[in-house]
Computed example of a mutant assay.
Amino acid sequence: MVSFILLMFIGLAGGLAVGSGFVAFLTVLGVIPRLADLTRSEKSLRYYEVAIVLGALAGVWFSLGEPHLSFPTPIVIAIGLLCGMFIGLLAAALTEVLNVFPILAKRIGMKNKVNLLLWAIVLGKILGSLYHWLFFVR
């Protein structure tokens, strides 16, 4: 009984920590308003809120259970493309908020070559993802 209560406490504490970090990420950095601004969809903020809540709930459901979903290959490809687009837009909004690339370029001495730096990051991400999927996911 004591181990069960301890496990519940640890799970609750972990959930609070992750949830607090997620909310801080969204509110303090202003990621959602920036994402809406970049995509010129400020009128659809309610949809962003609903999508975040549903995404968080789906993430919890997938994390706690072991659902096995079976979709045809074209649907899996479409889901993968949509997930990739979301991550790309989120990364663009975050870098826009933090002005990461100009600071990074200045610090590593590539102030006049920001395009080269961006291409290096993009190609590195693509090659790293391909390496992971081709050699580790079977």
Rank of each mutant, 00 (worst) to 15 (best):
M1S: 11
M1H: 09
V2W: 02
V2G: 02
V2S: 10
S3W: 06
S3H: 10
F4Q: 07
F4N: 10
I5V: 13
M8K: 07
M8P: 02
F9L: 12
L12R: 02
L12A: 14
L12G: 08
A13F: 12
A13E: 01
G14M: 08
G15F: 03
A17G: 03
V18A: 12
G19T: 12
G19P: 08
F22E: 07
F22S: 11
V23E: 06
V23L: 15
A24L: 14
F25Y: 15
F25V: 06
F25T: 11
F25I: 08
F25L: 15
L26V: 10
V28H: 13
V28M: 12
L29D: 07
G30S: 08
V31W: 05
I32L: 15
P33H: 06
L35K: 08
L35F: 13
D37M: 10
D37T: 14
L38Q: 03
L38M: 06
T39V: 06
T39Q: 09
T39I: 08
S44A: 13
S44P: 00
Y47F: 14
Y48C: 00
A51Q: 00
A51H: 02
I52W: 01
G55I: 00
L57R: 03
A58S: 12
G59H: 05
G59A: 07
G59I: 05
F62C: 10
S63A: 15
S63N: 10
G65R: 06
E66G: 15
P67G: 05
P67E: 02
P67Q: 04
H68Q: 15
F71G: 04
P74K: 05
I75H: 01
V76A: 08
I77R: 07
A78W: 03
I79F: 14
I79M: 10
L81F: 11
L81D: 02
L81T: 05
L81V: 12
L81R: 02
L82V: 13
L82P: 00
F86T: 11
I87P: 00
G88D: 01
G88C: 08
L90I: 09
A91D: 07
A93N: 05
A93I: 03
L94S: 08
T95N: 14
T95M: 14
E96A: 13
E96R: 09
V97H: 01
V97W: 04
L98I: 11
L98A: 09
L98E: 11
L98P: 01
L98H: 03
N99Q: 10
N99P: 00
I103V: 14
L104S: 02
A105N: 03
R107C: 05
I108R: 01
I108P: 05
G109H: 04
M110T: 03
K113Q: 14
V114I: 15
L116S: 13
L117Q: 06
L117H: 02
L118N: 11
W119G: 12
W119R: 10
I121H: 07
I121P: 00
L123N: 09
L123P: 05
K125Q: 14
I126N: 03
S129Q: 06
W133K: 03
W133I: 09
W133T: 09
L134S: 10
L134R: 03
L134Y: 10
F135N: 04
F135A: 07
V137F: 03
R138F: 06
